[in-house]
Design a protein around this nucleic acid. Structure first.
Lengths: 218, 218
DNA sequence: GTCTATAAAGGGATAGAC
DNA sequence: GTCTATCCCTTTATAGAC
């Protein structure tokens, strides 16, 4: 009986330690991969940041490749889900435009490295997304286009394809985070001023997008 | 006399070969570095693409680091010079906006990998640009701001900082090239449709920017 | 200048003890 | 589960012949 109890305790302890360690690894890996990319990341650095050693990394995730995929999938999800679910919602078009900019830039402010990381890795391995993309809900372009066309019919908006609209919104929202190092260097912008710029864009972007849509602006 | 002639011919031949080989290396390195980034690039691949062997790479450029810097500087120049010289020109503001979008996207169409490469490398080594930036002419923000303020005073434009304006123009023009792999995967866009999108944006971007500036659009 | 061969370092992955 | 020690392949860089 005593033996059984000890066995249980040990088992549970190990399980807790396991999930704990696994989480520490994932957190460390997320940091390092986002900072250096797949090619630039070093298993040693991930181990150090997680407070363990390389061997244990391979015990949990058999290879660098496997560990990377896990992180990559998670980040792709985080990047795409908000866009897709917002655009697929039944809200009125103008509401979507307003809420998307604010909520998305909030997410990016909390995770500023996501866009550049994702774009870079996607560029060096375009097939990687194909599989992941199919696991997710996909964007309902038809719905969005229908909403646009309704506004056009009412004489409120000029015609535009949903793709153009999304590219415009993504460009204006995401690019500053991708270009942050350049903006800092070329214009000498300190962090504080960058944050102000982002804050201000949560309002400026919807305004710009809508001004571009309005039929009475030539 | 015959000997001297031969020596000269050999010397000249070697010189020609030298600049020729150097150029082949630089071209190959440009391709590989842009495709894989500094960390992902392999000297072997550069040598193969240049039609020579690794040893010769090190003969011309002592290290991967040195070769990379050369390429990186050239690309930064190519990315920044058009923006800066266009914005520093004395043309009227609206003309700048129109010509920038078209000429810049033409350059990017011919060199589609430049933005992502530059952003990625700048992210992993922010100090690198500091030195390069100082070698170049810098953007004259005061001139641009003066032009904006004049239009505001005339009642044509709403107030905006030159930084916001530039970030908007850069975002809309550059982001599609950075996001191309994602757009292809998520929206299933083939190359041909992507090119159409870019072509169409040469006109759509200036229109959008100016609609956002016009005082009579709310 | 260009090559082949090789040194030297880096870094992912495994063996085996605890 | 976690560690130390080590393997071994990859990749940068150099030596030396032609």
């Amino acid at each position: 009986m005593r033996k059984l109890t000890n066995w249980l305790i040990s088992k549970i302890t190990k399980m807790e330690k396991a999930t704990d360690t696994e989480q520490k690894i994932l957190n460390a890996a997320k940091l390092v991969f986002q900072e250096k990319g797949m090619a630039g990341a070093r298993m040693q650095e991930i181990a150090d940041k997680a407070g363990i050693n390389k061997a244990l990394l391979h015990y949990y995730f058999r290879s660098k490749e496997k560990l990377f995929r896990k992180i990559f999938e998670e980040i792709v999800q985080k990047f795409l889900t908000p866009i897709i679910s917002e655009m697929n919602s039944e809200k009125p078009l103008e509401v979507k435009i307003w809420t998307f900019a604010e909520s998305y830039m909030n997410m990016l402010t909390a995770n500023p490295h996501i866009p550049l990381f994702m774009m870079h890795e996607l560029h060096s391995n375009p097939k990687a997304l194909q599989e992941i993309a199919h696991k997710n809900i996909s964007l309902n372009g038809a719905l969005l286009q229908k909403q646009i066309n309704e506004e056009v019919a009412k004489g409120n908006f000029k015609p535009i394809s949903f793709l153009e609209l999304i590219v415009n919104m993504l460009s204006l929202s995401v690019f500053p985070f991708v270009a942050k190092p350049m903006l800092k260097a070329v214009f000498g912008i300190p962090d504080e001023k960058f944050n102000q710029l982002i804050e201000q864009r949560k309002i400026a972007i919807p305004k710009l997008i809508i001004a571009g849509l309005k039929a009475d602006c030539n």
